[in-house]
Every structure is written in structure tokens, then in C-alpha cells.
């Protein structure tokens, strides 16, 4: 069975944590699931959200960002907008999430 791939793109801080939660929800449903925080800086993740990130990674998902402080503060993986575009080409489902 081929598992689907989904990527949620988040461009608004108020939608960041829920977008990441949605990504985890799809991973639980046996999809390769990713999120990208595009130009969106978030605060330090609390323990609950850090646990969610780890669960997502356990299921081969990841949260990417092009904001260096998200990498430094929360250990997210850096991905430029050009790299994001290339990653999107591999996806079955692309979700520009919420509002900008």
C-alpha cells in the first residue's frame, strides 16, 4: 500500500500550533505528513507541543521553517522557500492553512 504525502503550509502565528496538530493528525492516519512555518516565527514550544513534534517525527514527519529562530529555539528543520516548492511537488495533498 502506498501512503499519501501531505504538507500543511502555515503563514500566521495564530495558526501555527493548530496547523502542526493537523499535521500530526494526518500522520496518525498513516500518511507522510509535514508542516512548514513560512515566514512565521513562533514562541518556544511548551512540553505538550514539543511532545507532538516528537510524535510526528516518530512517524517520519517533520515541521520545517525558513525562520532561523524557529530552528534555534525549537529545533525545527530549516527549509528555504525554494526547497519548500520542490518538496510540494512530491506531495499528494497541499494545504495552505488558515489565513495569512
Amino acid at each position: 500500500m502506498e501512503y499519501k504525502k501531505a504538507l500543511i503550509i502555515i503563514r500566521n502565528k495564530d495558526y501555527a500550533l493548530d496547523g502542526m496538530r493537523s499535521a500530526l493528525g494526518l500522520a496518525v492516519e498513516n500518511m507522510y505528513s509535514y508542516a512548514h512555518l513560512l515566514d512565521t516565527e513562533i514562541d518556544k514550544l511548551d512540553d505538550n507541543n514539543q511532545d507532538r513534534l516528537e510524535m510526528l517525527r516518530d512517524m517520519e514527519g517533520e515541521v520545517y521553517t525558513n525562520v532561523q529562530s524557529n530552528v534555534d529555539q525549537n529545533g525545527l528543520e530549516f527549509m528555504s522557500i525554494e526547497e519548500l516548492g520542490e518538496k510540494l511537488r512530491e506531495m499528494d495533498v497541499i494545504v495552505p492553512y488558515g489565513i495569512i
Partner: peptide, 18 residues
Amino acid sequence: ATQTQHGLIIEDYDCYLN
């Protein structure tokens, strides 16, 4: 319900729109 509903939309429906 839960986010499972989103998974059902992707798996069980021909077309997807966000």
C-alpha cells in the same frame, strides 16, 4: 469529532479542496 475526519476526506474522497 477529531482530526481523523481530515484523514477520511483525503483517503475516501476523489477530490480534495481546502
